[in-house]
Design a protein around this nucleic acid. Structure first.
Lengths: 342, 342
DNA sequence: AGTACCATGGATAGCGCTATCCCAAATTCG
DNA sequence: CGAATTTGGGATAGCGCTATCCATGGTACT
């Protein structure tokens, strides 16, 4: 009299692989193989399965896939900041590459903080991500160990290294900064200041490229380095510009570590009626949006972050597939963009 | 003689809930309850479980949790663009609120494209997200249905509405634009152009606020509306500024629909030696980074996007917990920021 | 012809966790 | 003081998918 023994049903109502298999007249495992396109499944059967899936509007449950296969289709991406256009463009390129390949991007923002990065790493690794993209090479030992022990393929962004078992896509910040500084020197500038905020590893590498160029030209002066640890912004660029000119009226060029600072500096110059490049040449780094619109347009280094994202994502996909990567270190280079500010 | 029948072990090696339970001397389900803090579990037992978990460095497997409970701790966030600082700041605020609550943010970029949005929605809903945050109210019917049928709690960002069962956090774009236009009128401007790119719903709502103010003042002129569908940028702002001045030399104010356009316009004015606000007043919208640094500093509307993110996330958390939300529509307002450009 | 191999489809058994039912002991109450 | 309730713990059975092993029929060999 009572109902059938379906008392403890807990089904979620959504359409499952078994439904597809039943409709196609095959077993669940065959449907699974057909949809994933692995192992020999008869072409005609596979077609029938795909048709059934489409008809039922079947979407596999990622959680079940992850649980059963011990691997997810998440890729975790760790970047320092979301408010720096550089990383956002990097991210967009990564997503554009990864999403069509069926991967989900989990974005983690470290705020340049090792502990935050470590916490994010721990939480993301619990998701058994298929891959990992991290910014830069500098992280604490514990974080490095977590990455290594997890066995999750990992590609490092922005910088390059040639350590064994390390994969990286980036460019030489040092060389780029050196090239830019040499450009200033070639223009006859000798009192060149380096103005930086947000002292992350790349900013410091640029500083060393700047120093190298100046030392070679015999006009390095450590007192012309203004290193401010606060996050960069146009406002900060303006303040630092003023500070430099006040402290060192003889400065004839300023190398801002990032375009947003440089833009702020350029606007401050306009406000203060300091001729650019007449009295002071100004250069930035990264060629961010708006730098070409400044007055005068900003001379800078164009860093191909979209390409970094694309290449890193490709490399990661290869690693995930278990392929051997021929070139574990890709240097995407940089481009000196000469405009009117220097 | 052969090995024990453990032939088909497939364990992933990671530490599981059973390990914790065993160490604590309880059953798995009790450990689960203790760690989740649900149902009555003896305080002493719970402590023992927590201690064991910490000792083993246990991290629950999200895939298994999702599968078993038919609900994940992912929250999907759909935004139009990652290259607009507005949305990035929104996102940061959302993450800051959601992450401590134990939720993962999945970021989807729609590029203002309904089909892309629909595809993202489909893919994200397959992840059984715990909640959904979507930008704006305009989406195609199919997308709306998917959201409704999924039963996933959803909060709409940026705009406000008072439809039954809809939750939203935003501000009246119309009113803000109207206020800004009235400010221009109060300054004696009469030939006020509206210059827009990226014609998304909010940009059009601003246009209507602009029109309303001008009609009331009796000086609406449809030919002063320049609506360009291409994405906004400083460069576009510069081009449109030139175009407006050439076509309508009598224009005495320009309302740019977004600050990046306005910044470009401001720089173009500088280049063209057009006095601002002398000959033309310029206003923008959103108060993005750098607007305060312009020459002259830009008068604009400050939109509290961080607060939108925070409030929307809070509301979503309440919905996820099944609480009833007292105010399903939150208007965070806006602020007229008067600087020197108007 | 007989054996070794593929190539294909399926049965089975989990992945690690939680919903659900069950039961004993403790508590409340008329 | 016995019945009705409330606790708190556990056993069981999946969630939806895939790894692994098996079985079958064909093909390729010697």
């Amino acid at each position: 009299m009572t109902n059938p023994p379906l008392s403890r049903k807990r089904a979620t109502g959504r359409c499952t692989l078994s439904d597809v298999a039943r409709l196609a007249g095959v077993s669940a495992i065959t449907a699974s193989r057909a949809l994933r396109g692995i192992r020999g499944v008869d072409a005609e059967l596979a077609d029938r399965v795909r048709a059934a899936a489409k008809q039922l509007n079947y979407v596999p449950d990622p959680a079940a896939q992850a649980l059963a296969s011990a691997r997810s289709n998440n890729v975790a991406v760790l970047i320092p900041l979301l408010t720096n256009a550089l990383f956002v463009e990097l991210l967009e390129a990564v997503q554009r590459k990864l999403m069509p390949a069926g991967f989900q991007t989990l974005i983690g923002v470290t705020h340049y903080h090792p502990d935050e990065e470590e916490a994010l790493l721990q939480s993301y690794l619990a998701h058994r991500p298929a891959g990992l993209l991290v910014t830069g090479l500098d992280r604490n030992e514990s974080a490095r160990n977590m990455i290594a022990e997890s066995g999750v393929p990992c590609v490092h962004l922005m910088e390059t290294t040639v350590a064994a078992g390390m994969y990286s896509v980036g460019l030489s910040q040092h060389d780029a900064a050196r090239t830019l500084t040499e450009h200033l020197l070639a223009q006859g500038r000798r009192r060149i200041a380096y103005v930086a905020g947000q002292l992350d590893p790349r900013v410091l590498q640029r500083r060393s490229g700047y120093e190298a160029a100046l030392r070679q030209a015999g006009c390095y002066d450590a007192s012309l380095e203004i290193l401010d640890p606060t996050p960069t912004s146009m406002a900060l660029g303006g303040r630092l510009f003023e500070r430099v000119l006040k402290a060192h009226p003889d400065v004839d060029a300023i190398f801002f570590c990032n375009d947003d600072l440089a833009q702020g500096g350029l606007l401050a110059a306009l406000r203060m009626k300091v001729a650019v490049p007449g009295q002071v040449a100004i250069v930035g780094f990264n060629d961010l949006a708006g730098s070409d619109q400044m007055l005068p347009p900003l001379t800078t280094i164009r860093t191909p972050r979209a390409e970094i994202g694309t290449q890193a994502a490709s490399m990661l996909l290869a690693l995930i597939r278990g392929e051997t990567v021929a070139t574990p270190t890709v240097d995407v280079g940089f481009e000196l963009v000469v405009r009117q500010s220097a």
